[in-house]
Structures are given as structure tokens and as C-alpha cells.
Write a protein that binds this DNA or RNA. Structure first.
Length: 287
DNA sequence: GCGCAGGGGGTCG
DNA sequence: CGACCCCCTGCG
């Protein structure tokens, strides 16, 4: 572990708020000076924006440039993606302008699975609290600039927790789901390395075998983790609302079926529907 | 200030 | 299709 710094200049499509508050991650927190700090790759990373310059400061295992470029998806051309989405219709154009600094992170698959299991029927402040407490209790401590941080526990580390332990951390009825999923992964019944090699539908089916992973959670995992699949369209209450409001216009949004929404997403946004979802979601939820 | 309902990024049986 | 745990928020 070493202190490292990395700076990128003239970075388009990189806004801290858009990236960290668009709902894809739970372990990034804003500091009083407007920078954000998070725990990734068994290390701690701070991100600061100065004009078009982005400054990364960290203690990390491995090379910070490599880690940052991968994690923040820096080698993908978001300008091109945004242009493509903007051409679809006026709603996409507006939403892309609103969330112009979004980048979809390459988050650790295991951590993303557990995080989104926790997200079920839950709210963001509480989700963040639960993940923080789990990390504090079962992760590895890192001290940096006089503050203590905790890595998200590995499957081995988390397997130390009993169902009761998990319940005591405030997970509620998700305790058993976390417990069972941890064991399933640990036993290799679901091989996280193998999932990455599979096509989206097969990977999705495999994720669905995990306790606590339903369609919405599976799609979030596919989109927000290192699986990086843009051909999924996670549908939650917000997305349903937006899609109905913009395209379907049913009097009762609850009567709109998932199937119908997915069909429209496929037709309109195609292979990058996951990205379209994220811009629309962020736009409508914030505004 | 504080106590109390209401509800939340779905999943499971 | 109803129940589900528990914190967070907002209102009285």
C-alpha cells in the first residue's frame, strides 16, 4: 500500500455529483471541501475536481492510474454515447444534459451483489449505513490521514457472520439472503469469475439463482459492476414512473407491465438501454 | 425538541 | 399478491 496521486486534464463527462449521486454506488461520501472519498480495491481514494482537471489521491495496492482508469471507465467515449442518446428524442436530450458528468463505475462484482441485495425495499441512507457497518465489522481496516476506513469484506470475511450477526447490523429481513448468498459464492456454486465470461442473459439467469437477487437487483448488478452490461434495463418504481410519463402514458402507472417497459426500452435505446436508464433515472429523481 | 406514523432502488413464499 | 425489518424523514 502506498500513497499515490494521479491527475487527468481536460476531462469531459466527469462530474463528481453526477457520478456518485446517480444511484449506482453506496460507499462514496462527500467531504466538507466538496471532494469525495471512497473505499475501492482494498484501498482509499479521494477525488477532487478543479475545473476540467480531476485529481485522484489514494492509498492503494497496485498502480493508481490503471485502477482509476478502469474504475471510472475513463477509456470509454461518453461524449459519443451522449450524442447518440441525445438523437433519440427530446427527453433523452434533456436527461443527458442534466446528467452530463455521469460515468458508470466498474465496481467489484461481489460487493455490488451484496449491496444491491441490501437495497431491496430500502432507502439510500439506510443502505449506506448497513454497508458501512458490515465493512466496519468484517472488512479490513485502513488508516489514512488520521482517519479509519474499512474495505468491504471478502466472501471469506463475511462468512464469519451468522444470520443473527447480520440482523444485529440492521439488515432486517435481508439477513438470510446475505448469509445464503455468501455461502453460495464461497462454495463456488456461483462462480463470479465465470459469470463475466457469459452472455448477458446467461449471466442474468445465474445471478437470479442467488438469494435476494430478483430481476431488478440482477440488472443493477449487471450494469453497475465489472460485468458492465449496457444491454439491461433495471426497472424500479422511478423508472416505471418515468417511462409511463414519457412514453406509455397510462392513467395508472402501476398497471404498466415490466414487459411493456422492457420492450419500449429495447426498441428505443437498444444496446445502450442501461445507460439511457441511468440518465433518465437521475434526471427524473433529482428534478 | 421529541414522539410517532408512513414508507422505502424488491424479493420470496 | 401480501408480508417483510428497520431506519430515516417529516409532521404534529
Amino acid at each position: 500500500m502506498k500513497q499515490q496521486k494521479y491527475i487527468i486534464e481536460n476531462q469531459e463527462s466527469f462530474e463528481l455529483k453526477d457520478i456518485f449521486e446517480c444511484g449506482q454506488c453506496f460507499r462514496w461520501n462527500e467531504n466538507e471541501d466538496g471532494t469525495y472519498t471512497g473505499v475501492i480495491n482494498k484501498g482509499v481514494l479521494n477525488v477532487e475536481k478543479q475545473g476540467k482537471k480531476v485529481i485522484f489521491t489514494s492509498v492503494l495496492d497496485g498502480d493508481i492510474e490503471e485502477i482509476v482508469r478502469f474504475y471510472f471507465d475513463l477509456d470509454r467515449n461518453y461524449e459519443e454515447i451522449k450524442a447518440q442518446l441525445s438523437n433519440i428524442d427530446k427527453y433523452l436530450k434533456t436527461s443527458v444534459e442534466y446528467g452530463k458528468g455521469i460515468r458508470i463505475l466498474n465496481q467489484d462484482l461481489w460487493e455490488t451483489i451484496i449491496s444491491f441485495i441490501i437495497s431491496a425495499n430500502n432507502n439510500i441512507p439506510r443502505i449506506k449505513g448497513i454497508i458501512e457497518r458490515i465493512s466496519e465489522k468484517y472488512g479490513t481496516e485502513i488508516e489514512w490521514n488520521g482517519k479509519k476506513y474499512y474495505t468491504f469484506p471478502t466472501p471469506e470475511q463475511l462468512s464469519q457472520a451468522t444470520v443473527e450477526d447480520l440482523r444485529a447490523l440492521g439488515t432486517g429481513f435481508r439477513d438470510i439472503r446475505i448469509y445464503e448468498t455468501t455461502r453460495k459464492v464461497l462454495r463456488g456454486e456461483v462462480d463470479l469469475n465465470e459469470i463475466a465470461k457469459k452472455d448477458t442473459l446467461t449471466a442474468r439467469d445465474e445471478l437470479l439463482t442467488l438469494s435476494g437477487v430478483g430481476p431488478k437487483v440482477a440488472d443493477c448488478i449487471l450494469l453497475f459492476s465489472t460485468l458492465k452490461r449496457f444491454d439491461v434495463f433495471p426497472i424500479d418504481v422511478w423508472v416505471r414512473r418515468v417511462m409511463n410519463e414519457l412514453y406509455i402514458k397510462n392513467d395508472d402507472e402501476n398497471k404498466v407491465s415490466k414487459k411493456e417497459i422492457m420492450k419500449i426500452a429495447e426498441q428505443k435505446f437498444g444496446a445502450i438501454q442501461g445507460l439511457a436508464q441511468q440518465y433518465l433515472f437521475y434526471w427524473k429523481r433529482e428534478a
